[in-house]
């Protein structure tokens, strides 16, 4: 196998797997600590509103949740930025995301594997705007005065909070569909390609 190039047949470069893992861990950490912050004054219904069960929160109380949230935001944001630079630098953006070929495949191809692959490319491309939306709305709430121009894009405070919160169910729904599809394609080769930490495991 072509281990010298850092790429394996059906595998992903180590750096892509690293971006993937750091994203998963920091994203779920920001979600859990975000739900802890949410509980201080629920987006829906205020103090009398529906609270999140403590088991899926992180930090123990508001200050703890904020410590985790505002620490992991750097890991999450810088990882995503690094990934963005990597995608452009290596020109991965040209053939790694959904393209008109996938749309054509869905319209014309009768090969079920090609069709499933096309669907999956649509699905995993959709996470990019969701991840960016989480940062844009988060930054708007963290520094609403210094980034007032950004915050004003999302309407009033309640809609800003709601949009920021909605990235959570979107990510969870995405994770469900993406992992199901990734495990289903080529007997799980896509999932293995991104999740295995060591090339030799493939």
């Amino acid at each position: 196998m072509g281990a010298t190039t850092g790429k394996l047949t059906g595998g992903q470069p180590t750096i892509a797997r690293l971006f993937h893992w750091v994203n998963i861990i920091s994203l779920f950490g920001t979600i859990a600590s975000g739900l802890q912050i949410y509980n201080a004054n629920p987006v829906f219904g205020g103090r009398e509103g529906i609270h999140i069960p403590w088991l899926i929160t992180l930090g123990g109380w508001l200050a703890g949740g904020r410590n985790w949230h505002f620490a992991l935001m750097w890991v999450y944001g810088l990882n995503l930025l690094g990934y963005g630079i990597y995608v452009f630098w290596t020109k991965r953006w040209r053939d790694r995301f959904v393209s008109d070929k996938d749309i054509k495949a869905l319209q014309a191809s009768s090969n079920p594997k090609r069709r499933q692959y096309a669907w999956h490319r649509i699905v995993y491309t959709s996470i990019i705007p969701i991840l960016i939306l989480a940062i844009a709305t988060g930054l708007s709430m963290y520094q609403p005065v210094q980034f007032y121009w950004l915050a004003s894009l999302f309407g009033d405070w309640q809609s800003l909070r709601t949009i920021h919160f909605m990235t959570v169910p979107l990510v969870l729904l995405y994770t469900l569909i993406h992992s199901t599809l990734a495990l289903g394609i080529g007997d799980g080769k896509i999932a293995t390609a991104f999740l295995k930490l060591k090339s030799s495991d493939l």
Partner: peptide
Amino acid sequence: GLLVNVAGTLLYDPIGRIS
């Protein structure tokens, strides 16, 4: 999940000292 949750509460202070 329980382990992560407990660790999250125990470690929020050192995390804050860094962040």
